[in-house]
């Protein structure tokens, strides 16, 4: 890890100014659970860290209005144990609570977590040129394609990159049409969480749509009755403290036994947090049965293009969606 400078401004404006002044090699750091980890691996090589975690006001949690507003620097742990979130939006509490460990959730922020980078093993292990990786070194190739791809994406991948978007929280947010507020040198803007992420295409090194110097100052979730009948279901290689093999965020609005409107998003299987709209269409307006839920799950993977070792995730992912639908439906509205 190269030598770095560090500053911890108290306001967003000061941070944006510090970032601009630091020039090349400047990076924001919040909880640091991704960035510092990747610095230790030699994958991230910033020269200047601007710590945004202490910006005043960005740790606030406001769940009282028509929009739930989480300051970008609120920790994952704090949001996960907010009473309104736990009672009315179990998918949010579960997505946060099933991520990493309590230690890391006490550090990581709900804004920073949206920018978590992939766990692709060839990406993480490649610092000294061990493996070609278009994400790390554009144009070098992709070692994961034709390699050990059990953990690679089967949705949204390109010929240049199959790296999975690793997060849980973004998946739940995408299901609920959440948005982020972003502050940068050119002022403040908002955009859907889904629009934060770029598909890999030919440029997998470009992962996010944030512009240089921008900070995620808030995460905003439109209040919805669907939140109560919701879940974040996550299957992994052990019972806890692991990334998803396949996960599903599901929120339902029901008319009796019929699904009025379903929101379904997938994690662990795609290159970005993956909204499964075709699957939603299949179950919307339908009487809820396990069979229909499973068909919905399969519909979510209709476009899947598995590699050598991850085809099982089509079946697994469909079952995870189906289980999530049934769990969500079983919750009181």
């Amino acid at each position: 890890m190269r030598a770095i400078t560090y500053t911890r401004p108290a306001t967003a404006q000061a941070a944006i100014t510090a970032f601009a002044q630091a020039g090349e090699g400047a990076r924001y750091i919040a909880g640091g659970t991704t960035l510092y980890d990747l610095m230790k691996l030699g994958i991230e090589t910033p020269a200047h860290l601007v710590d945004v975690s202490a910006i005043e006001g960005l740790g606030s949690i406001d769940t009282g209005g028509d929009v739930l507003r989480f300051g970008g620097m609120a920790t994952m742990a704090d949001v996960a144990r907010d009473r309104v979130v736990m009672e009315r939006y179990p998918l949010l509490a579960e997505a946060l609570g099933k991520a990493a460990s309590q230690q890391l959730r006490n550090m990581a922020t709900v804004g920073g977590n949206l920018l978590q980078r992939t766990r692709c093993l060839y990406f993480r292990n490649g610092a000294s040129g061990l493996y070609p990786c278009n994400k790390r070194e554009p144009g070098s190739g992709c070692a994961a394609i034709g390699g050990l791809d059990r953990g690679q994406a089967l949705l949204g991948q390109s010929d240049a990159c199959t790296a999975v978007s690793p997060g849980d929280w973004p998946v739940a947010l995408v299901a609920l049409d959440a948005s982020v507020e972003v502050e940068g040198p050119d002022g403040t803007r908002t955009m859907p969480v889904a629009d934060l992420y770029r598909m890999p295409g030919d440029t997998p090194h470009l992962e996010f749509t944030l512009r240089p110097g921008e900070i995620i100052t808030a995460v905003m979730v439109p209040a919805t009755a669907a939140g109560r009948r919701s879940t974040y279901h996550k299957v992994r290689d052990r019972e806890s403290y692991a990334f998803a093999l396949a996960s599903a965020a599901v929120a339902l609005e029901m008319d009796g036994e019929t699904v009025r409107e379903a929101r379904i998003a997938l994690g662990g299987v795609a290159t970005v947090p993956w909204r499964a709209r075709a699957a939603e269409a299949l179950i919307n307006g339908a009487p809820l049965t396990r069979e229909r839920a499973l068909a919905t799950g399969h519909a979510a993977f209709a476009d899947a293009r598995p590699g050598r070792h991850n085809a099982f995730k089509i079946q697994l992912g469909a079952e995870v969606v189906a289980d999530a639908v049934m769990i969500a439906a079983g919750r009181a509205s």
Binding site: L121, Y131, L148, R150, D237
Partner: peptide
């Protein structure tokens, strides 16, 4: 849970950390 994943093209344990070489945790 446990297995080293070795890409024969490179000869290296790919899952060379405690997140990816999956040992049992308390919940297991």
């Amino acid at each position: 849970r446990e297995a080293a994943e070795i890409d024969p093209r490179y000869g290296f344990v790919l899952n060379n950390d405690l997140a990816d070489y999956v040992v049992p945790v308390n919940a297991d």
